[in-house]
Simulated scan of single mutants.
Amino acid sequence: MGYWYLAIAIVSEVIATLALKASDGFSQFFYSAICVIGYVAAFYFLSLVLKTVPVGIAYAVWAGMGIILVAAISAIIYKQVPDLPAIIGMGLILAGVAVMNLYSKTAAH
């Protein structure tokens, strides 16, 4: 169940981060509210994840996937397309998350 909660935490954090951009410095109430609710949900579900998944693994997956998803969605919504070095860097982050989950004995606990 921990990885399902992690997926919810990641999606909540991504929504909150995208809403943070749209909130225009918390001057737009609707997007500010989505931002706050999203971050509260993200941390709540992350706290549930940490009952069964090691904190280092959970945080690495959460942060890594959040970076990839926010960058990809920002490219579509905000037209903030990452350049080649940024894409390579994010690919390396994704590869690191994959290596941890596929080969680390820590991730299996």
Rank of each mutant, 00 (worst) to 15 (best):
D24V: 07
V14G: 02
T52H: 11
F30N: 04
Y39F: 15
M1V: 13
A72V: 03
I34F: 12
A60C: 12
V97N: 02
A98K: 00
Y31K: 08
T52A: 13
L94M: 14
A71T: 12
L92Y: 07
W62M: 05
M1Q: 09
I73G: 00
V70L: 05
L92N: 01
G91K: 03
G25N: 11
L102Y: 11
P85T: 09
G25T: 12
S27T: 15
L102P: 02
Y5H: 13
S23M: 05
I34V: 12
T106P: 00
V49Q: 08
A107I: 01
Y39H: 11
A72L: 12
L102R: 05
L50K: 06
P85D: 04
Y103H: 09
L69Y: 10
E13Q: 14
V49N: 06
V11F: 10
A16P: 00
L20D: 00
F30M: 10
V14P: 04
L6C: 03
A22F: 14
V97H: 02
Q28W: 05
A41M: 13
F45C: 06
V99P: 00
Y3Q: 07
F45H: 13
G56I: 14
K79V: 13
Q28I: 15
Q80D: 15
G56S: 12
F30T: 12
Y44V: 15
G38N: 09
Q28T: 14
K79C: 07
A75P: 07
Y103K: 11
G91E: 08
M90P: 01
G96I: 12
M1G: 13
A95C: 12
L102D: 01
N101Q: 14
L6N: 09
V55F: 01
Y39E: 00
L50M: 11
I34N: 02
A86Q: 13
V61S: 05
W4Y: 12
A63P: 06
Y78K: 03
S12F: 06
Y5E: 06
M90V: 04
G91D: 07
H109A: 13
N101S: 11
Y5L: 04
A22Y: 15
I73K: 03
A42N: 12
V97I: 10
V70T: 14
V55S: 10
V70W: 09
M1R: 09
G89C: 10
S12L: 01
V55Y: 01
L50Y: 08
S104A: 05
V14F: 08
G66D: 04
V97D: 08
I8G: 01
L50R: 07
G38F: 02
G89P: 10
G91A: 01
W62K: 02
E13T: 08
L92K: 03
K21H: 10
